[in-house]
Every structure is written in structure tokens, then in C-alpha cells.
């Protein structure tokens, strides 16, 4: 079974930009390991003659024509952002010193 340690949890939280309080690391480590353990049951299934797939429904080549459609939701979309400045989305400074 996959072993999860507190370092893995810190890393995942960092990659997901989650600010995880230090006193919850232990809790999440246990919970994540339980989840992975639950999913790991699938490994017991014999898949010897089964083609690997990435999806439950086999559809291929779902395509659309190259046609432009204008939506009237531009203003609403920009307004959805926590911060707008004119026609722009405003975001915090990118790189930390």
C-alpha cells in the first residue's frame, strides 16, 4: 500500500497553493492515506487482458467546426474576478523577491 508521509502532504498542499496549518498536517496525512488505501482495492482486480483506458465512455474525435461565436457574457466574466481594473483582471504581484 502507498505510504504517505507528512512531507508528501506539505508538498501537495504547496503545489495546490493551500495554506495548511501545521497542526492539521498529521490529520491530513492519515486521511489521505486512508483514501489511497480505499482506491488501492482496485489493484486487486485482474486486468491481464484488459486494454488500458483513461475514460469510462469510449468516444473518439469529438470535434467542432472552426466557427466564431460571440458570447454576451464578457462583462459578467470580468466582474466574477475578485479584482478588476478597467477591462483587465487584476491579480497580485507575480514573483516574490
Amino acid at each position: 500500500m502507498t505510504k504517505i508521509n507528512s512531507e508528501d502532504v506539505r508538498k501537495v498542499a504547496k503545489l495546490a497553493r493551500l495554506d495548511l496549518p501545521e497542526d492539521l498536517i498529521e490529520t491530513y496525512t492519515i486521511q489521505l492515506e486512508e483514501i489511497l488505501g480505499y482506491v488501492a482495492q482496485l489493484e486487486k482486480v485482474d486486468t491481464t487482458n484488459v486494454e488500458p483506458t483513461t475514460r469510462a465512455v469510449e468516444v473518439t474525435n469529438v470535434l467542432r467546426e472552426d466557427v466564431v461565436k460571440f458570447t454576451e457574457v464578457r462583462e459578467e466574466l470580468i466582474d466574477l474576478a475578485p479584482n478588476r481594473e478597467g477591462d483587465f483582471f487584476r491579480v497580485p504581484k507575480i514573483l516574490s523577491e
Binding site: V67, V68, K69, T71, R74, L77
Partner: peptide, 16 residues
């Protein structure tokens, strides 16, 4: 189906 036109006002060609 949003347009790819270059050089328009910011965020003209956005959709959900």
C-alpha cells in the same frame, strides 16, 4: 468558439 483576433481591447475574446 471565441475569436482569435489579435490586437483587440483586453478580454474581448473570452467566454466561460
Amino acid at each position: 468558439s471565441a475569436s482569435t483576433t489579435f490586437g483587440d481591447a483586453p478580454n474581448t475574446h473570452i467566454d466561460p
